[in-house]
Every structure is written in structure tokens, then in C-alpha cells.
Nucleic acid binder design. Sequence first.
DNA 1: TGATTTATTTCGATAGTCAAACTAATTTTT
DNA 2: AAAAATTAGTTTGACTATCGAAATAAATCA
Lengths: 155, 155
Amino acid sequence: MKLMNETVPVNFESLNGELVDVFNNVMWIEEAALKQSDFSDITLKDMHTIDAVSMYSEKSASQVAKIVHLTPSAMTTAIDKLVDKGYIERRRSNKDRRVVRLGLTHKGRVVYRAHQGFHRDLTHNLLKDMAPQETVIVQRAIHNLVCYLANVIKH
Amino acid sequence: MKLMNETVPVNFESLNGELVDVFNNVMWIEEAALKQSDFSDITLKDMHTIDAVSMYSEKSASQVAKIVHLTPSAMTTAIDKLVDKGYIERRRSNKDRRVVRLGLTHKGRVVYRAHQGFHRDLTHNLLKDMAPQETVIVQRAIHNLVCYLANVIKH
DNA sequence: TGATTTATTTCGATAGTCAAACTAATTTTT
DNA sequence: AAAAATTAGTTTGACTATCGAAATAAATCA
């Protein structure tokens, strides 16, 4: 375990604690919000699938599987469910008839936008009462995190 | 859907995107890191249970269940597994013999500290190359988020 | 004491996941 | 051009996590 030293700001531990809090809870809160919404028939994981399918590009099933870290077989059943519930459409590509192109239905686009709204609210609240030059610093911090995580991925 | 307006910094969308990235990926990265570690026999959810049991307080099974958002029955089986694997100890309270007090074994404390280390690394990297007065701003932002999420919980 | 509440466990059902085998379409090799 | 290898997706079977309802056990209340 690392010990604190003098160069670390005194409230490192409290920041760390709040960060852990955020990570442990966002997912659950998002899930709970979804259950109380008009789209209670899908889970947060379904939501992420819908998000990966997204609005404007026609991604293949395996591309989406990769994004959400599911195996192709799990993706198949996930899509089955979302097709049944009317959020996603399957179309066999004419170019290469092995591939399945995925797209959102009207209902899918509605829930996609709602989910985007949720995330925008988070971002707005992250920046609450911040001066423009302060928001830049926050942005740098989040960017640090993204870079670090990207590095962890490629060990 | 909220529209952007002039008071919002131009890179709101990019910050929002990176934040979504972080939320969608931390969990998965944490899970993957765990699989490659010496503790590949537990999942991230197990890790969060261990974290909730934590080092120094003797929490009951249902308290831990509440923290990690599991039903008591699911908690029972989750604990069974972690007891078998040697991470957690069950002790019946002498005060009230209905309640099960949970504690970490030596192995449990080791993995708990490793997990704390992971989170501390995240926090360190969030603050990478930041001046002390900048870290305060970042802390304020994260605190905003915690407060917002706490509000969402109690609708 | 008997009834009620509380903490945990057991049981049965359901849903999500993976790996392996399989189908169909495409590309490469010979 | 036929055969072999590759690729995209699906089906199947096994396993795990989770929940809700009922069971158990202990404490508290009337």
C-alpha cells in the first residue's frame, strides 16, 4: 500500500473515496432510473448495446459485441431480445450476406436520446458553478483518466 | 433533449464523450485487471462485496447486501462462495444471534488493499500534472457529481 | 407465553453468459 | 474452377447470478 507523502494534497483520500463512490454508484443509479422510466423493459446493459448501435452508423453485430465486451453468441441473444422488444432492427447486408447490419427503430432512437440526456445531465452537474477556465481543468483531469485507462488496456 | 447554449464551453460534447467512455470502461478494465492478477478466482462484483465488508468494521450480511445492492438471499450465496474461497469469515454475533457479522480473512485483506491500490492509481492519474490549486477544482467537480447522484437517488 | 418482527437461509425459477459445434457466405489456394 | 480456409453469425448445452417466496431461527412485544 502506498503511503501518503507531502507532495500529495491533504484531501487525496477524500477525493479518492468520492471517486470510488461515483464509480460504484453511477451504474446502479442509471439502472434504477431506467426501471422507473418508460423503458423499464430493458436493462442498462441493453441500453449500452443500443448506445453502441447508435444513431447514424450501421454497425455489424460483431462490431457492437466488441464495443460492449460481449461474445458474438451473447450478442446474438441480446439482439434477439431487443428486436423482439422493438428497439433494434436486423438487416442482412447486401454487400456481404454473412454480416448483420444493426439499426435503431424509432423506439430505439427515442431511448437512445433519453440516455444521452442522462449523460449530459451528469456532465452538466460535474461542471456545476464552474468558471470557463475551471471547466478546462476538469476536462484535462477526465482526459488524464481516459488516457490512463487506455494505457491499462494495452497492459 | 437539452440544446447547447452559449454559456456552455465549446468542448462540452467532447468532455461528455470522455466521461461516458470512463463510465463504460472502468468496470470492464477493473474486471480484466482482476482476471490477470493473483486473485483471478473472484469477479469484480465479489471484489465490491469484499470492499463493502471492508477492513475495520464488522458489518452484518444485510448491511453489506444493501451497500452492493443485492437482495439478502443473493448475498447469502455470494458470501458462501467467498467463504469457500477463503476471503471472508462469517461469525454469528453474540449480542444478537440472528445476525451474521462479516470480516475479511488475511487473504481478504490482501486483495482489499490491492483493490484500494487500483483506485488510488486512478485518482493519482486523474490529478496527473496538476498544480495544487487545480486539484482543488477537480475535487469540487467530483464532489458536484457525488451530490448530484445522491440527489437522483432520493428522486 | 404466544404473537410479531427481524436476520438469514433455502429453494425453485429465470435470465445472462460463455464455449463449442454448426451453417452459410466469402476469400484464398492450387 | 474446385477445394480449402476463413469469416459472421447462430444454436445448443452447461454454468452462474439473481430474485422472490417460503422456511428457519432468534429477539422483542403485548
